[in-house]
Nucleic acid binder design. Structure first.
Lengths: 215, 215
DNA sequence: TAGATTGTTAATCGATTAACAATC
DNA sequence: TAGATTGTTAATCGATTAACAATC
């Protein structure tokens, strides 16, 4: 009965679309518009909204401004969303400076690394030695970490994070970690996405002729 | 009737697991082992294999080495998988040097950017001005691009790519692009993943007491 | 042979869609 | 009022699972 991540992904997209509509001066939106913009059916839009008690007007659609703020409450955007980044190689540092985070209210509290050469405890987003991570997490009440470390160190870091307040991890290391009762893991595997795309391209090429049948 | 991306994702995971098993000296594997390792049911493993005619032995499971090479053929790993990276900011450069790509046979042919200061046409992975992209794509027959540009330039680049041989895009810009008949788009939106994780953490916290009911 | 595991079919499950009464 | 859009229910669809005959 708990809400599927897929539903929340759509909610996040609805909110982004509405944010843009609001900036363009729109005041109301219909489920049909939302459906077009996000690429789902109008039924699904109304269904998703109704799950969270987000209501509109039988004839006038949905009020954008009101819906955005109610969506943000549902999505927990009324709380501080602090994260840490573990592994400050190229990918980690790219994420530390990623402006998509502040834009949606996510704040990078610190980075951690084992290499003394890249530590910088006084930067706006400080980089501490990995040995200080447990104290930092406890002190700041961090719940979400982004893991951008080599595959070889990923598993041991995960294991040590299990003893902390960390409850969610975005994992960029190329091994599929599984969510557990107490720790939610979302794997991001760019090479897998690319391999999947290559498969799809090739399979649509080789079925070119038979693909002529009508939908 | 075409194969879902989700099935291919699992195939890619099966292959990775088998690769590791092979390195450990294993010769055979059962659908039960695979299921445990990847986190799916044994039925699904056998089903996935059977879709692609990947067979085992009624009593002896699957031969790892043979299955890996047959999987690689299904997945198109017998062809060169060249990609380009459009937008060589921090994220783009991190991906250019990402060692997960060569490890699975993906080669970054070049990067492209509009900033003259970061061009380097003679580097091992050259960075060209964006104005040269059409010729490069045509000349090298590139089919897949990774988009790591600001949101503001993403849409116009996509539009221009539609006139090229590019058939697949991994999009890191924070706008959800939709796949079309001729162009497969896979959006990677890290901030959305993080917001989703925060939602899940919060919702499991607030339903702590009621979550006691047995599965 | 007896036991174990595959390959496949039928049953189940859950998510999406279609339809439409309610109503603004 | 007539027309349009929501909110919700029932129908559909497709993916996953359970079960088991085949067989090594």
């Amino acid at each position: 009965m708990k809400t599927q991540p897929a539903v929340i992904d759509r909610l996040l997209k609805y909110r982004d679309v509405m944010q843009k509509m609001k900036e363009l001066g729109f005041v109301r939106v219909f489920s049909d518009n939302m459906a077009d913009a996000v690429g789902v059916s109008p039924s699904l839009v109304r269904k998703d909204f109704s799950i969270f008690g987000l209501t509109g007007n039988k004839r006038g659609g949905y009020q954008i401004e009101e819906l955005i703020s109610r969506l943000n409450i549902v999505l927990g955007k009324d709380r501080k969303q602090k994260i840490i980044i573990i592994g400050c190689g190229k990918m980690g540092r790219a994420l530390m400076n990623y402006n998509g985070f502040p834009r949606v209210g996510i704040r990078v509290a610190a980075g951690f690394d084992s290499d003394p050469a890249i530590l910088d405890e006084t930067a706006p987003i400080p980089v501490f030695h990995i040995s200080k991570i447990k104290d930092f997490i406890a002190e700041k009440g961090i719940q979400v970490a982004v893991l951008t470390v080599p595959e070889s160190s990923a598993q041991s870091i995960i294991d040590s994070l299990k003893k902390t307040s960390i409850k969610g991890i975005i994992n960029f290391a190329p091994l599929s970690l599984r969510s557990s009762e107490t720790l939610i893991v979302q794997n991001i595997n760019v090479e897998q996405e690319i391999e999947n795309i290559f498969y799809q391209i090739h399979s649509s090429e080789s079925s070119e002729s038979s693909a002529r049948e009508p939908k």
